[in-house]
Amino acid sequence: MRNAHPGLPELDYVKPGSLEEASKFLAAHAGESRPFLGGTDCIVRIRDGAWKPKYLVDVKGLEGTTGISFDPAKGLTIGAAVPMNKVAAHPDVQKHYPLLVEACNWVASYQLRSRATIVGNVCNASPAGDTIGAAICLDGVLNVFGPDGYRKEPLTTFFFGPGKTALKPGDIATSIFFPLPPKESAGKYLKLGRNRLGDLAIVGVTAFAYKDASVASGYRFRIALASVGPTPIRPTAAEEILAKSIDESAVEAAAQAAMDSCTPIDDTRGTARYRKLMIRNLTRQAVSAVLAQLKK
């Protein structure tokens, strides 16, 4: 059993002056350096001995990483350095992306969210990441600066496994962009932890839907499941059921399909058996809650 360090082992803090400088340093020290944002995952994992970087490269404050900007024609850009509490308190986010606010407020504790960032949560790619489901359902796209300059990484193809993503050494996610959500849309994040608040998710269910006359039910759903597989899971079978019908039996069938789509494990937070049942129940609740909002 690996004992955690009392504090952080010896390492150095690096504060580059530009994205180029940061990217070069990270590429040159691949495997022994990490970009550093809120630090709330990083410090924990280094203390645990899971990560052993020699250098933490603070990219907060570099070009494009600060601030929240909302363009009514395009959408929302959240800098990588913006802590979750700032996101949740932002009036444009509250007005146009309430699902993001809800997801942020389920993360750990208030004081942790003063540091933790959405981009950090996404890039660390924990299957339990609370904001990842919302980011996926809202069609999030990461803006990444790497050795070859800027590129975009849509979240649909970003996650490979726990902690494994499309990011490579020298890459710095500078911000996350969300297009304008469809008109008449609504979302819900339901999280089950051992405590009522503050725990990691035993399971988490994000449901998002908008009115769409082109499908039989009139509603198009996006659903994301947390903590029930190596990556966040999109239960497309459930989404398709709801495109056909949203009556009670369809919602139940979608919940069942979500349950069938996930591959949880037993761990200290819960067993696979319980997790599957909870995915079913929370999917039912989340879908119903979204429909109730849309029917208002």
């Binding site: 059993m1 051992r194 405590n195 009522r196 608040l197 725990d199 937070r269």
Partner: peptide, 18 residues
């Protein structure tokens, strides 16, 4: 003999909300 939950992450205690 291995304590699988020796931290506040895995050994939860009641908070203000509970």
């Amino acid at each position: 003999g291995v304590w699988r939950n020796p931290s506040f992450v895995d050994y939860r205690i009641a908070t203000t909300m509970d």
